[in-house]
């Protein structure tokens, strides 16, 4: 009974959050340029929440630390940028193509990476991610190199509010699909490979194939996030592929809680919010952002490896007893 109540509570809480998120831009729109800025920020939060949740498919649920997830984010972004700017493809088509290209890239990189698990996997994802970054950096004629690709066309109907709503709808759809994946028998098998590799092998799970499929799916959803982000900024640049962006997603998972499904989304929003708050306090704080992040991460690893969601659970349990 308790469990059922918990499930109901989760749905009610989720629905209320979604409703609030739908109303939010209309409220913010009343506050002029400040409001517009915050619409932009919340749009970024939604996109990054999608990116972090996609990473958590492999990180939290698969137990595979990838330091190269930004590669798929970046590939998604460049796909949208190139298709729209150079081929004149419509936004919707470009947004469909982005995850497909990202997923394909993930299939190629993943084929190598899942051959080795644990530490080697982490090493390889970082290396391959960095490889894509350097290719984008060097291949000037195709990717614009250091400058990136600017001036991605923006359809007329897409004001800040409409784009926010588009992102929100895409996010919710992806979020539900990923939730389904995690709770499916496939998702359970993946969790088993994390918890007990030998047992997973013993009961006949083709571990490598499952991990590869999981890796591709994570890349696929990261591609969507990248595509949305390119259109939001109306440019794509090498920084999107950089390892530090992979780091951001890892932080989001760790801060929010990588053993829960909503954790990464929460963590990512909290971090973006924190970044802006610091910016408002003093510009110099933003300059040491990486150091601040690093210390937060250190603290979380040592003292709260289950993240905010885990902390919240601990506190509520303590209050009950």
């Amino acid at each position: 009974m308790d469990k059922l109540q918990q499930v109901n509570k989760n749905w009610i809480f989720g629905a209320a959050t979604v409703a609030l998120l739908f109303i939010l831009p209309f409220v913010l729109a009343r506050f002029g340029t400040t409001g517009e800025f915050w619409i932009w920020v919340t749009t970024e939060m939604i996109i990054m929440a999608l990116f972090a949740t996609s990473l958590n498919l492999i990180l939290g649920f698969g137990g595979m630390v990838s330091f190269g997830h930004a590669a798929f984010f970046g590939v998604g972004a460049y796909t949208v940028a190139l298709l729209m700017k150079k081929a004149g493809v419509s936004l919707i088509l470009a947004l469909i193509a982005a995850p497909c290209v990202a997923g394909l890239t993930a299939a190629i990189i993943g084929w190598f990476c899942v051959r080795l698990i644990g530490l080697y996997f982490a090493i390889l994802t970082l290396a391959f991610g960095q490889l894509l970054y350097m290719i984008a950096f060097q291949w000037y004629t195709f990717t614009g190199g250091d400058d990136g690709i600017h001036g991605i066309p923006k359809p007329d109907f897409l004001g800040p509010t409409n784009y926010y709503l588009l992102c929100l709808v895409v996010f919710i759809a992806c979020f539900l699909v990923m939730r389904m994946i995690v709770n499916s028998s496939f998702g359970l098998s993946i969790r088993l490979t994390r918890e007990n590799l030998d047992r997973a092998k013993f009961i006949g799970i083709n571990v490598r194939r499952y991990q590869l499929i999981n890796f591709i799916m994570a890349g696929f959803f990261a591609g969507i996030a990248g595509g949305l982000f390119a259109e939001l900024n109306r440019f794509a640049q090498t920084e999107f592929l950089h390892w530090s962006r992979s780091g951001d997603a890892i932080f989001a998972c760790l801060v929010g809680g990588m053993y829960s499904f909503v954790g990464p989304a929460i963590g990512s929003s909290v971090l973006i919010f924190l970044h802006i708050v610091l910016q408002q306090i003093h510009q110099s704080l933003v300059e040491i952002w990486a150091i601040i992040l690093g210390f937060i991460l250190l603290g979380m690893v040592l003292f709260a490896p289950e993240g905010l969601v885990g902390l919240y659970g601990k506190i509520t349990r303590k209050l009950k007893t």
């Binding site: 137990g63 644990g118 530490l119 890892i250 990486a290 150091i291 210390f295 991460l297």
Partner: peptide, 22 residues
């Protein structure tokens, strides 16, 4: 867990690299 070890050294990387920049 490997995961926590990697994240810890990764956090150090961020801190040290940024400290170098400063």
């Amino acid at each position: 867990e490997h995961l926590l070890q990697l994240l810890l050294t990764y956090a150090l990387l961020l801190i040290l690299d940024d400290a170098c920049r400063l």
